[in-house]
Amino acid sequence: MEFDFKHLGFTLLGLLIVLNWGLLMSALMQKIGARVARRIGIRLYQPWIDLIKNYAIRSQISHGIMFYLGPVFRFSGGVGIFLFMPLIVGSVMWSNYSFQGDLVLIMYFQFFGMLGMALGAGESGHPNSAIGISRGLAQFTAIEAPLTLAIISLAIQYNTLSIVDIVEAQQGGIQNWSAWTNPFATIAGMLAALGSMGHSPFNLVKAPNEIPIGPPTEYHGTFLGVLRTNAAILHVMEAALFMNLFFGGANNWFEFILKTFLIYFWSVFVGVVFPRFRIEQSVAWFFKIPLIAGVVAIILFM
């Protein structure tokens, strides 16, 4: 594929839209959580102010080179997923660079950010960071098992690992979505989604009232700003991944926003109802129903 400035412009514009939608969505979800607790909650523009405030912190301290690189790795993980994720079906410009990548690459980018963050937070030397990392990696490994099985099942079903092809195979009505044609993979994937979104009951890693804040304990100012920018992009992108895999992708931006909202809302909906798991409970949970659903999905399409 030749280098095209117009394509690059559309990709950057898409990144901007996704970033702002991610920030708005996180504010909406906090607002929903607050209403469940009978509070009014934060203002809708609070995430933007928090970002500006964090970038405007004057003094920053470093614990070493990896401490600097941790947020950079995490951010490149989030942007990497964005670059290879088709946003709108059939649109060349809004498909980013998805033709050059596939599902395996996106799975890799998901883990890449985690590992970079683990190295960076590890160098900060804070014991809470180290505990948070070990818990986070253990939980993410448990999440990967059903998620990978669901993705392999889809790959067998559609005979491809390209997300673009998987989305295009689901066009032509709700009955063609993977959610109907491959329900067990959808169950495994959406239960794994609960974990990868990081809401309660699987928010042990980053919950402020557990080991304080977890891996980013020592991160502040611009470091934290980069992490939060990435979190906004990553949340939309994870919702977009599940949208593309199981719910037929999006034909326009309205559909994109509606579907990503609902998929993200699914984790918040579960989160406000169920209390937090301990780490051994959450790891064990992923090895029960989600894993069995994933194995069944594989067996059905063998």
């Binding site: 607050a34 009978r38 909650g41 934060i42 402020p208 304080p212 804040i213 304990t217």
Partner: peptide, 22 residues
């Protein structure tokens, strides 16, 4: 921080680590 006074409305949030607090 809880429903009666709900300081989140005014941009007040609590952090568990001194690095991130103002």
């Amino acid at each position: 921080m809880t429903p009666r006074f709900d300081a989140f409305r005014f941009g007040v949030q609590s952090r568990a680590t001194p690095r991130q607090s103002n």
